[in-house]
Design a protein around this nucleic acid. Sequence first.
RNA 1: GGAGAAAUGGCAGAGUGGUCGAAUGCGGCAGUCUUGAAAACUGUUGAGGGUCACACCUCCGGGGGUUCGAAUCCCUCUUUCUCCGCCA
Length: 423
Amino acid sequence: MLQIQKIREQKDNFIDALKKRNIDAKPLFDEIVALDEKRRATQTELDNTLAESNKLSKEIGMLFKSGKASEANELKAKTGDLKEVSKKLGDDLNQAADQLQELLYQIPNIPHESVPSGNSDEDNEEVFREGAVPELTDNALPHWELAKKYDIIDFELGVKVTGAGFPVYKGKGARLQRALISYFLDKNTAAGYTEIQVPHLVNEASGYGTGQLPDKEGQMYHVQADDLYLIPTAEVPVTNLFRDEIVKKEEFPIRYTGYTPCFRREAGSYGAHVRGLNRLHQFDKVEIVRVEHPDNSYNALNGMVEHVKTILRELKLPYRILRLCGGDLGFTSALTYDFEVFSTAQDRWLEISSVSNFETYQANRLKLRFKDENGKNQLAHTLNGSSLALPRVLAGILENYQTANGIEIPEVLVPYCGFDTIS
RNA sequence: GGAGAAAUGGCAGAGUGGUCGAAUGCGGCAGUCUUGAAAACUGUUGAGGGUCACACCUCCGGGGGUUCGAAUCCCUCUUUCUCCGCCA
């Protein structure tokens, strides 16, 4: 959520920047500024009324104490009007504040200056590419065929037990999955991230804290009996650890990594592109989260990008990095880099990681602050990234490492798997 | 799930209708002393709104109520603790 003071100060700049998202924010901002003025005016009026009635109450107390009951009762009669006025002003204030909040929730984050303009993923800007695309034989198979051939992932069984998009991993498939999780966590902790295990269900306040609510209400599984949401990413519980916190600036950088399953309803997406592991309702992901001093957040973002690179290099997967354009940028993000692995067998790029800086957007909702050098509380910056998302990495490995003799296991994973081929 | 107790500032812990945003201790910060540190002493130290800056306003788990006035009384929700039950 944007800070109202910042909107007041630089409304026109924001409107300009939001054009990159193909949004004309002017009407909304005009309404917000007007509402904010109304809110403050009402607040001032209410404050004055309350000040007066506080004063009267004190006088009444003194009079009673010194035994002047009749004078006290006289004053009492005067307080009725004030009470009525302050009640009305209080209601007005709440109403204005609620309306303002609702409008603020509708505004996405301001894109970073480096974000290219554009409408869709086609306008994303490739900034880096690395790794050799393997030459596969003509009869190379997509991963869903390989999964069947070697009996390592069973999609039909998942359908029986739950429904489409909930695969069952079997034998070496399950082991490879577990190996990847361990390997990712080890890489992340070696890079200074503290491993953490968090709940897989979160409350409504957490959903608002990181911005999934109200924007993506329909994308999360909602357990209505308990009013809890299944997490769509570890970002939600991990970042919300810092909700309503004031951290010491010496604590920076704050770095966490966690493995969780992720649950997404993915309402309305069907077709060839969601086959196999390409899009699931439940998948595993290892996430990295950072809380940073504003001066260091872009530095931190670059560090996260470099870190994910080292993992893909070790896995020897061909990949590229995209800087997301305004039209494809997530609602809460200021700058996002997507990592994509190339799958020869599918002849397409698969998104396997997304690394973002949210600047103060989440921190403002979370009330996540730090004390600066002047002792003033300031919003921190939050960042996160996948390191990495399992299914598409798995798909990439299966498809790129297939040989006539089976699927080879990337060297770095062999110690984690305990085998070097799936055949 | 049943019965009881509790929720106060970074932490501990007073405060049971008026001068309480809140004693005291610890911790933090600044200073005095010291070559430096420790100890001791002195001062300072919650959050938000508002203002050029003050003033002023709100917040004692959340919400609602009683009252001229609520941390304090009432209702309700949540959470924690103790005991019982159930259970991986």
